[in-house]
């Protein structure tokens, strides 16, 4: 803070003395901005007519603020809008496939529940699309920013899950599939695609996991008309453990998501 101005200087400033040079006025004013004591001292020294003028101005400004328009509201946060843009077609597709699975269950109740069989891979198209060169037009701009990395991937994945999980719950309610057996494999596969994504890229990881699941589990169980062992109600704990393990692995490799090569 600057030195407190002399009382005499402050009095001359209050009177508007033209003999006070510009540099002194400037230094008094810059000091007044930061010093409440000197402002109080100045207030005690200003002549009555100046005080009356200040009161009139203050009242007029107050009236003007009250009569004027209300402060403009901030527009909707852009990032929320951004989240809704890219994976939308993929989420629509997921919703369509789940709808078909519910219909099929109603037509052929003898087959193992397709909703249960598809639940693990339901979020994968959306997850793959949410951080991908092909679906994010501005990937090169985004990849060079400090926000790029695991945090951004998780944020986008959460947005995908926020749509997919209610869809799964709805489909489960219609077909009577147990909720735990819908959600835990779904979370485990999401975490696995991110963990594997740190090695080969999220898109490839999601595609690979989806293919392996379809070939190794979905196709045989449809052929034999039996629900696979891994999807029987006792497996929920194992799926939950797998989800936590995969998430931990992904978090430990967070630095690999900062560049383009490993995250496309």
């Amino acid at each position: 803070m600057t030195m407190h101005p002399d009382v005499a200087v402050l009095a001359r400033y209050a009177d508007g003395d033209p003999g006070l040079d510009e540099a002194s006025v400037w230094s008094v004013e810059s000091h007044l901005e930061t010093c409440a004591d000197c402002r109080a001292r100045l207030a005690g020294q200003i002549p009555d007519d100046t005080r009356a003028l200040l009161d009139v101005v203050g009242a007029a400004v107050g009236r003007g603020i009250e009569a004027g328009p209300a402060p403009a509201r901030r527009r909707m946060a852009i990032r929320r809008r951004r989240l809704a843009v890219t994976p939308a077609p993929w989420l629509t597709m997921t919703a369509g496939v789940l709808g078909c699975a519910v219909l099929l269950h109603a037509i052929a109740p003898d087959l193992p529940s397709l909703v249960l069989l598809l639940a693990p891979v339901a979020p994968l198209p959306g997850v793959a699309a949410s951080w991908n060169r092909r679906t994010d037009p501005a990937w090169e701009l985004v990849a060079g920013t400090p926000s790029a990395g695991l945090g951004m991937l998780l944020r986008r994945t959460t947005a995908v899950l926020a749509v997919v999980i209610p869809l799964l719950a709805l489909a489960g309610a219609r077909t009577g599939a147990p909720l735990a057996m819908l959600l835990t494999p779904c979370l485990a596969f999401t975490a696995a695609s991110i963990a594997l994504g740190s090695l080969i890229g999220v898109r490839r990881a999601a595609a690979g996991l989806g293919t392996v699941w379809s070939v190794a589990v979905v196709a045989p169980s449809l052929a034999t008309a039996q629900l696979p062992v891994v999807l029987t109600p006792g497996g929920a704990a194992a799926w939950a453990a797998a989800a936590v393990g995969m998430a931990g692995f992904a978090a430990a490799r967070a630095d690999l998501f900062r560049r383009l090569n490993s995250a496309d």
């Binding site: 951004r82 994010d136 990937w139 090169e140 701009l141 790029a148």
Partner: peptide
């Protein structure tokens, strides 16, 4: 460079500033 076609110029620049 790609961009989000439905963003306005201001939204685009603000979004990048936020990132």
């Amino acid at each position: 460079f790609g961009f989000y076609p439905r963003f306005t110029v201001r939204e685009f620049v603000e979004y990048m500033a936020w990132l």
